Simulated assay, not measured.
Amino acid sequence: MNKTKKNIFQSAIKTFSTNGYDGATMDEISASAGVAKGTVYYYFKSKDEVFKYIITEGVSLLRQQMECINVGKGDYAYKLRELSKNQLRLVYDNRDLFKVIMSQAWGGKIRHSELRELLKSYMEDIEKFLIKAMEDGTIKKCDSSFLTYTYFGTLASVAVYNVIKNDSMKLDEITDNFMNHLLNGIR
């Protein structure tokens, strides 16, 4: 992605995060990026196209990171901890992007269903990862689909917790707490 497109991308994330989809305008995206409105239209035909681009890139970041960890060295106990830590870091470092993604996951419009399809592919990656962790003996065998959504939901909640707590905990500490509760339950 060239510098101008990256600048528009970052500005669009901020605009959607601050104003929501309906409140965001191409005028505001261009003003925030410091480029002419025509420049934004050079790269993106519409606000919807900008939105699709940022959510596709966001989910792609999550999936790429998971793939790197999945093919990396270590057993699945190590990989699960690294996945959790890195996913939390990615969400934390890109909180505006993930605010946009999470806020648009519900609804009946085409953009909502397209986002859910992207999230579904991400969930399928998580499920494959967790199945390998079950086969490895890192976690007990259970309904992998339910576990996938439980893992994702808990991970998202931990990210929200850290944002609310204003970084009062370090990433390693958050990851250790998450892993302890994930692997040992709340009993």
Rank of each mutant, 00 (worst) to 15 (best):
M1E: 09
I8V: 06
I8L: 10
I13M: 09
K14M: 04
S17Y: 14
T18C: 11
N19S: 15
D22N: 14
G23R: 03
T25Y: 14
M26G: 12
M26K: 11
I29A: 02
S32V: 02
A33K: 01
A33M: 03
A36F: 07
K37Y: 05
K37A: 03
T39H: 07
Y43E: 13
F51I: 02
T56L: 08
E57R: 11
V59Q: 05
L61P: 00
Q64S: 12
Q64H: 06
Q65K: 07
E67K: 07
C68K: 14
I69D: 02
N70M: 13
N70Y: 07
N70D: 12
V71P: 01
Y76S: 11
Y78V: 06
K79R: 15
L83V: 08
K85V: 05
K85D: 09
L88W: 14
L88S: 08
L88F: 10
R89K: 15
V91H: 08
D93S: 11
D93C: 10
N94Q: 13
F98D: 08
K99S: 13
Q104T: 07
G107P: 00
E114I: 00
R116M: 04
L118G: 00
K120S: 01
K120W: 06
K132M: 13
E135N: 14
I139G: 00
S144T: 13
Y151D: 00
F152N: 08
F152K: 09
G153V: 04
T154G: 11
A156E: 15
A159G: 08
I164S: 12
K165P: 00
D167Q: 14
K170A: 12
E173R: 14
T175P: 06
F178Q: 03
F178G: 00
I186Q: 12
